[in-house]
Amino acid sequence: MSNEWPLWEVFIRGQHGLSHRHVGSLHAPDADMAIKNARDVYTRRNEGVSIWVVEARHIAATAPGEKGPLFEPSESKVYRHPTFFDIPDEVGHM
């Protein structure tokens, strides 16, 4: 049986006001140590103000094969973007 420490994914908030971003992964025996390891591994250059970790096996993801049905339908909804609408300059900023 493998005694390898579980794999954790690390998310760091780089600055106040920004979202947490995935920065990488690491191994740790539990969540507490994963956070400490993330602090030591991924914030050596003052990169963060907040850390999230989640065990990699708990992440659910889309399957690459479903890319078409999942993401292409939104391509045709051009009217969702502000540039779709021509508004006369006289109206001012909108």
């Binding site: 420490w5 690491l26 191994h27 740790a28 400490k36 390891n37 030591d40 591994v41 050596r44």
Partner: peptide, 8 residues
């Protein structure tokens, strides 16, 4: 014993 500890 492990890379994470080395770095810490």
């Amino acid at each position: 014993p492990v890379l994470e500890e080395d770095i810490a």
